[in-house]
């Protein structure tokens, strides 16, 4: 049996299933969502025909009793909180993860592999389950408060659940491996003789770190920041379980519109906004990568 000889035919046949499946079930849905976001909402779920930018207007303005547009910051606050919490998650992961990534690269090969394995395990385990575990830790009768209460150190609950702090903790926890792995990858490629050269030229530990190690790990740092930011800004599980629906983020807001609120166009508009944030982050990464390419000649 012989396969088609023409390489173009072969390519077409090999790629066709992937193009079809992702095209029909991923690209087309995104376009439908975009179209939906410009349609009128059907109170029973779904959309009614007709073009309107109502959904986008709703993000910033509300109609008051006199049918006049009135600035309403309620969604702006959610957007701001999403970006802020995502940025906090990024910095939390960076500060927590960088020394770890560096420490791993300085170990011998066998130990490195073991530690990397330990870093990746949580990433591949169920996010819902891992986030749920934090309820057991943070809640009023959780493993932190229970002993403190029985020892009489505290009387009233610390109220750790359903706060921005709880959501941020959950986000950092969820996406920490995504920061450590790319930074490890770029630090691992770093020629350690450059650090020796820096020390030889009178750079102290801190100076060598600042002048040589961090600049050369920059691609990994940027990649890690993007990888953490993108899922954080659209997170649903952490704000839902640990924010308890009180600290809404974009992800939970979108979910609400398709679940209980039944305002599909508005949910679509918010989803488009989320995609815009993601695009901006990716373009920023692309630009800095291109700049690096130009610099290195």
């Amino acid at each position: 049996m012989n396969l088609p000889q023409n390489p173009a035919t072969r390519r077409f046949l090999g790629l066709l299933p992937a193009w079809l499946v992702i095209g029909i079930f991923m690209v087309m849905p995104m376009m439908i969502l975009l179209v939906f976001s410009f349609m009128e909402s059907d109170p029973y779920g779904g959309v009614d025909p007709g073009f309107t930018i109502e959904a986008y207007r709703q993000i910033l303005f509300d109609l008051n009793f006199d049918d006049e547009l009135e600035f309403d910051p309620v969604y702006l606050i959610i957007i701001g909180r999403s970006i802020l919490l995502a940025l906090i998650a990024v910095f939390g992961c960076l500060i927590f993860g960088f020394p770890v990534a560096y420490y791993i690269t300085r170990q011998e090969r066998r130990v490195q592999n073991m530690l990397l394995y330990l870093v990746t395990i949580p990433f591949w385990t169920n996010l819902l389950v891992r986030t749920y575990a934090w309820i057991l830790i943070l809640s009023g009768d959780g493993v932190i408060e229970q002993p403190l209460k029985s020892l009489g150190i505290i009387e009233n609950s610390l109220e750790m659940m359903y706060t921005n702090g709880a959501v941020a903790t959950g986000l950092v926890y969820s996406y920490l491996p995504l920061m450590v792995l790319p930074i490890y990858a770029s630090l691992e490629k770093l020629d350690f003789r450059l650090v020796e050269a820096a020390h030889d030229l009178y750079a102290s530990r801190f100076q060598a770190f600042k002048q040589v190690i961090v600049p050369l790990a920059k691609p990994g740092i940027i990649a890690g920041c993007i990888l953490v930011f993108v899922p954080s800004v659209g997170a649903f599980i952490a704000p839902d379980l640990l924010g308890g629906g009180k600290k809404l983020m974009l992800g939970s807001l979108i979910h609400l519109q398709f679940a209980s609120s039944r305002n599909w166009p508005f949910g679509g508009a918010i989803a488009m906004l989320l995609l815009a944030f993601v695009m901006i982050a990716l373009l920023w990464q692309l630009r800095s990568a291109r700049k690096r390419m130009e610099e290195s000649g």
């Binding site: 079930f25 991923m26 087309m28 849905p29 995104m30 439908i32 969502l33 939906f36 993108v230 899922p231 800004v233 659209g234 649903f236 974009l250 992800g251 979108i254 979910h255 519109q257 398709f258 599909w264 949910g267 679509g268 989803a271 989320l274 995609l275 993601v278 990716l282």
Partner: peptide, 14 residues
């Protein structure tokens, strides 16, 4: 690349 929640609601619409 696409946030999961966006994929989720888009697929629902589809």
């Amino acid at each position: 690349v696409v946030p999961e929640i966006a994929t989720a609601v888009a697929t629902l619409c589809f």
